[in-house]
């Protein structure tokens, strides 16, 4: 079922309008119907050749730091443009895009979620992989359980927190376990990398599997331990402009900025590896 059929239901629309929650109505339906006013008012026209106007970038939560930086640089390089971000889990974001959320660019933390977008022809161009990331062991400062290798995570008595297999970081952890022949019995299967990192930095867990960039971004609150088997799972980050974009020129320019050498430098500084 598409969002259009849901939003098109007259009873729903009438009630929403009657409740005078016009803003809600456009947020839910603006992207797919195009007739709903409001969403266009904040955007200036993009018909001129010079870049201007605003775009909304839906990006994986792990890109928060780097994309905020790239966005600020982009706005500086192209005065008159505004880049707004919505950072969340890739699967949440793709679900919102499927429901007609007004996004111009989508950057996913894995190819699976980008595939969902391309499968429904929501992307305007073929997605470009712009970075990759691998797993690393995160331990609390001081490493109380003396973890030194992936095999240590299988040791009884070591409290390990992983992502749930249903979320990308958990799927990656499962693949690494398999490749290394280690059987980890986690005390908790968390919803996201942030939750894993939180349990480790609070000292609740002895170790967790997160991405290299997460360890780097967490600063002193956790310690990272690399392990050779991490190369078994390399996570690719694809980006693409979206068909629903009302400012294609700026959306495409932003994608180009991410893949440019300046953008790649920002990503590398945060610990991202180059696209494989």
């Amino acid at each position: 079922m598409t969002s259009r059929s849901r939003c098109g239901r007259p009873a729903v629309l009438a009630l929403v309008a009657a409740a005078s929650t016009v803003a809600l109505g456009t947020a839910a339906c603006g992207g797919s119907t195009g007739s709903a006013g409001g969403t266009t008012s904040s955007r200036s026209s993009s018909s001129s050749l010079g870049l201007s106007g605003s775009i909304t970038v839906f990006a994986a939560a792990s890109l928060k730091r780097t994309f905020t930086r790239i966005g600020a640089d982009f706005e500086k390089a192209h005065p008159g443009t505004t880049v707004t971000f919505s950072f969340a889990g890739s699967s949440d974001l793709v679900a919102q895009i499927q429901q007609g959320a007004p996004a111009d660019v989508f950057a996913s933390a894995d190819t699976e979620n980008m595939d969902k977008a391309t499968a429904e022809s929501l992307t305007a161009a073929t997605p470009v992989v712009f970075a990759s990331n691998t797993l690393e062991i995160a331990v609390p400062p001081g490493n109380p359980a003396k973890v030194a290798s992936l095999a240590d995570l299988g040791r009884p008595g070591v409290k390990v927190v992983l992502c749930a297999p249903a979320v990308p970081c958990g799927a990656a952890a499962a693949k690494v376990e398999q490749a290394a022949g280690v059987d980890i019995k986690p005390v908790s299967e968390e919803q996201s990398v942030t939750d894993v990192l939180g349990k480790v930095s609070a000292g609740e867990a002895d170790a967790g599997l997160v991405y290299v960039t997460d360890v780097k971004g967490a600063g002193d609150s956790v310690q990272g331990i690399t392990f050779p088997q991490s190369s078994a799972v390399v996570n690719s980050y694809p980006v693409a402009s979206l068909k629903s974009s009302r400012n294609k020129a700026v959306a495409d320019a932003f994608v180009a900025a991410v893949t440019s050498s300046a953008g790649q430098q920002v990503l590398a500084a945060a610990g991202f590896a180059e696209a494989p």
Binding site: A95, A166, V167, V187, S188, E189, Q191
Partner: peptide
Amino acid sequence: ITFAGSLQGVTRTLPLEIYLQRETDP
């Protein structure tokens, strides 16, 4: 989810299960 974690049969209550299922099986 902040304090207890999430593990089937131990700490994953119905609201947590719903939130997790949404990831793969809406």
